[in-house]
Amino acid sequence: MSIITALEHVVDREHVYPFLVPKQAPTLDVSHKVLLYLEGISVSFDGFKAINDLNLYINDGELRCIIGPNGAGKTTMMDIITGKTRPDCGSAWFGQTIDLLAMDEPAIAQAGIGRKFQKPTVFEELSVWENLELAMADDRDVWSIFNARLNSEQSSMLLETIELIGLQENAKMPAGRLSHGQKQWLEIGMLLMQKPRLLLVDEPVAGMTHQEMDRTAELLISLAGRHSVVVVEHDMDFVRNLAGDDRTVTVLHQGSVLSEGRMSKVQQDPKVVEVYLGE
């Protein structure tokens, strides 16, 4: 089976692949040091208020952990940020000048917001290297991408990314043969090839071994600074490891921010213990 035929078989037509989006990204302004603004956001589905007057601010270069019980609104929040769901009211800005509510999903992806879903989305018939090459942000035609040689800058970026995600020894291996954790790292690498400013990462360690969880925490921590990273997760041990003593943790409940601060503060908040940690 040729690479192109394999690609045609594995592309999910419902998934927004940023590398298939026209390159027309608006200019990002983070002069106020805040990358993402969500203000007064509310949305209801059949009478159920999934998001209720949500206010959330993510700083440029920040690693933020977001936790909350099932139904807290975590997935809906990410759907709003990425344009999959439109809120009933409120505002969502990427930097000071990019109105996310005025854009569709492909435009938001191209503006610099990458999303990693819980289930990894990789091209299993293609090698690790080919997955990363395909995801690279440039102006080449997708269907002829493998017939063109990489320039030095592209090669350097690909080598840096494959080393960052720890898959150098698996470069020629079909992605379908990777472990679950390795597929998660590969998808993060594919997002990085798009040079996103903000990464939304949904439950990255579900189904991982403890060793893979530790490696995932190291990877996400290493991305902070160069990128803003928002991690939604249920595993509290992983969140403690990821947040440490100096990163902000946000607790959502019934579509609103219930508590926010360092992990030690959040853990001791009686409201959090009642609705989440104490369940």
Rank of each mutant, 00 (worst) to 15 (best):
F146M: 08
I113V: 06
K195D: 09
G176C: 02
P196T: 05
L126G: 02
K195L: 11
P196F: 09
L186H: 03
K183G: 00
L159W: 13
K119P: 00
M136D: 10
P120T: 02
N147Q: 10
F123Q: 05
V201Q: 09
R149Y: 10
G189N: 07
A135N: 05
N147E: 08
S156Q: 15
L200V: 00
M190I: 06
L178P: 04
E160Y: 11
L159D: 15
A148L: 12
Q154M: 13
R149L: 08
R149K: 15
Q182Y: 04
G166L: 05
L191Y: 01
R115D: 01
L150H: 09
G112L: 01
I162Q: 01
E169P: 11
H180D: 11
L158Q: 12
Q182L: 03
W129P: 08
E169L: 15
D139L: 10
I188P: 00
S152V: 15
L186C: 09
S127M: 01
E153H: 11
K116D: 08
G181E: 07
M193W: 06
K195P: 08
N147I: 06
L191I: 07
K172V: 10
E133K: 14
R177F: 06
D138Y: 09
G176T: 00
A137H: 10
L192V: 02
A148N: 14
L200P: 00
M157P: 11
I145A: 06
T121Y: 08
G189V: 05
E187K: 12
S127E: 01
D139N: 14
R197S: 07
N170M: 13
K119A: 00
Q168T: 14
E133T: 07
S127N: 02
L132G: 06
G189A: 07
L191K: 00
E130N: 08
S127L: 03
W143K: 07
P120Y: 07
A137T: 07
E160G: 11
K195T: 14
L199S: 01
Q184L: 00
D141N: 13
I145W: 09
T161N: 11
A171S: 14
L186M: 07
R149C: 09
A175K: 03
A135G: 07
L192M: 06
Q182A: 02
G189L: 08
E153P: 03
G112D: 04
V122A: 04
L192Y: 04
L200W: 05
R177Q: 12
L126Y: 01
G114T: 06
G166H: 08
A135M: 07
Q118V: 00
E160Q: 14
E130A: 05
Q182W: 04
N170F: 14
S144F: 15
E153G: 08
P174L: 02
V122R: 01
A171Q: 13
I162L: 03
L150E: 13
K119G: 00
L198D: 00
E125N: 02
E125R: 05
K116H: 03
A135V: 13
M157Y: 12
S156L: 13
R115E: 01
E187H: 12
G176Q: 03
L150D: 14
G166C: 09
L159T: 11
A137E: 04
E163G: 10
G181Y: 00
